[in-house]
Nucleic acid binder design. Sequence first.
DNA 1: TTAATTCCTACTAAAGTTATAGGATAAACC
DNA 2: GGTTTATCCTATAACTTTAGTAGGAATTAA
Lengths: 136, 136
Amino acid sequence: MKISTRGRNAIKFMLDLADHDNGTPVKLKEIASRQNISVKYLEHIASILHRASLVTSVKGAGGGYLLSGSPDKFTVGQILKATEGSMAPAECVGEGGTECQRKSFCVSFLIWDKLNTAIDSTLEGITLDDLRTWQE
Amino acid sequence: MKISTRGRNAIKFMLDLADHDNGTPVKLKEIASRQNISVKYLEHIASILHRASLVTSVKGAGGGYLLSGSPDKFTVGQILKATEGSMAPAECVGEGGTECQRKSFCVSFLIWDKLNTAIDSTLEGITLDDLRTWQE
DNA sequence: TTAATTCCTACTAAAGTTATAGGATAAACC
DNA sequence: GGTTTATCCTATAACTTTAGTAGGAATTAA
């Protein structure tokens, strides 16, 4: 039950954007070199985060990426849900948990539901702003 | 970040053992039919749990499996750690977390450490006995 | 001796992850 | 208007993990 490197890199990407926001878009090339990730791989990650509306992009020369809001508006949970698809430990729990006939009497469901709540409240409780504070 | 079906079945297996403990070993065949899992697949799972000393086995005719202790001694966390290898969300945290030079100043480490604590305390807080209570 | 049962090792198929490659599209700048 | 700088989009390949099957060896009860 590991977080993928995709997810880990997405957090680095978002944090890098927060750290280097001076109003103008930040280039993938710069982020890639700072975070030691290939530009090509970062493109994927940026694309996912873009689709999830966590970042905005500016095309063409002088373009790049920007957070779509202030750093206190983004949680680690949001970022990981975008990159991992979902952070629920089983299909039957979390947002859009698939309908399972057994839900009402399934013991396992109760486990996954508790676990999901623990994971979700932990990750939704950490914002990019918190991460910046921790960096100091 | 899903729990594997291996892990989910391991919990069913252990709970079935708790539910059908009458002093004599419980056969895989019975568990398999009750839990709707193939005997062959259950063999794998039983083998993992045996190696982890969570169950004891009796070979030969009339043999089968038994919990190696009372149901209140086994946590869902123990079972899942055995089957999933580890429940830590990243290599750097949890029991035997690999040594990472960056630990002391890594922001991500703090995320995974918090998450690991949340997951671990949730899963270590649920015993087979609790599951039996929930069933009623 | 036979039947029941765990134990052990291979193997296969499917899915997901981690990238890389090549080029299309869009905008800035001279 | 052409060149350069970037994002955007699709395909692909290598690798790993998971899920599940198969065959038979070892062990014990009856």
